[in-house]
């Protein structure tokens, strides 16, 4: 089982993502953007990791979305192979039309806007830990395959543009109805309070991650690869033993590949 971690110029999370892939029992390698794109077909699954591809020029993710390697990735996704986009990877998948999946650009990840008590308290870049609630059913998406509905997972975010917005009427409701909303930002007891710091970036209805209708393409702003060991979770000294919650995303991918074979 081989996973390609796709690296664009400016990507900066490929190494820890590869660690997470291997830690979940899969093989993997970093796939540089200018390799012959047909070599991509040899892999069983794909991760588009975080970073600042092309330095977020024009807008986050758009320049990478036009690279030839993305055309091939779309073909592989159409075959049903799993694709997970994390942070900048999510932005790239949205700009390429792979999420929410119509092929059109139906969403934008706009600048973070932190609202508290009806007042904007901060904007833009933010790094911090969040709690995610798994919103969908088990097996709904390649990255949440092993998660129970309502499961809570601690993961960090680190981005300036994760505020999910759409101009397409009814789309948000449709995503919820089709169980395509996979993760929402919530508080430690699991309530999706629509206010900073719980809604950490102002995202519509606290949405942190979505999948395509088929479930094999998942995009999420938080970084599961930074939460694969329990020691990575804050605060030090007050955390449960064992693997970190982020590992479930990668183990889900592995299970997804196993059952789709």
């Amino acid at each position: 089982m081989r996973i390609a971690v796709i690296q664009f110029p400016g990507t900066n999370c490929e190494h820890e993502t590869l660690v997470a892939v291997r830690d979940a029992g899969m093989d993997g390698e970093i796939f540089r953007w200018n390799r012959p794109e047909q070599e991509l077909s040899e892999f069983d699954g794909y991760i588009v990791p975080g970073g600042f591809s092309y330095q977020d020029r024009l807008r986050a993710g758009v320049i990478a979305s036009k690279e030839p390697v993305m055309a091939t990735l779309k073909e592989e996704a159409a075959e049903g192979k799993p694709v997970i986009g994390i942070c900048n990877g999510f932005q790239i998948l949205v700009e390429s039309g792979m999420l929410p999946g119509s092929g059109e650009i139906d969403l934008a990840l706009a600048q973070n806007v932190m609202v508290k008590g009806g007042r904007i308290v901060r904007r833009g870049y933010y790094c911090g830990w969040t709690t995610l609630r798994h919103e969908s059913l088990p097996r709904r998406s390649c990255g949440s395959f092993l998660l129970d509905g309502g499961a809570l997972l601690q993961m960090p975010i680190a981005h300036a543009e994760g505020n999910l917005v759409t101009a397409k009427e009814g789309l948000i409701q449709e995503l919820a109805d089709e169980d395509q909303v996979i993760f929402r930002y919530c508080n430690s007891s699991g309530t999706a309070v629509d206010e900073f710091p719980v809604n950490v970036n102002g995202s519509t209805e606290n949405i942190a991650g979505i999948c395509n209708p088929e479930g094999n393409v998942l995009g999420m702003m938080p970084h599961p690869e930074r939460a694969i060991f329990s020691w990575q979770l804050p605060p030090p000294g007050r955390r449960p033993p064992g693997p970190g919650p982020g590992r479930m995303v990668f183990e889900s991918m592995r299970r997804f590949i196993e059952v789709s074979r």
């Binding site: 024009l58 807008r59 758009v62 934008a108 706009a110 917005v165 759409t166 101009a167 397409k168």
Partner: peptide
Amino acid sequence: KLLINPNKD
């Protein structure tokens, strides 16, 4: 095709 994302621009 490139300069805008219609959901915000």
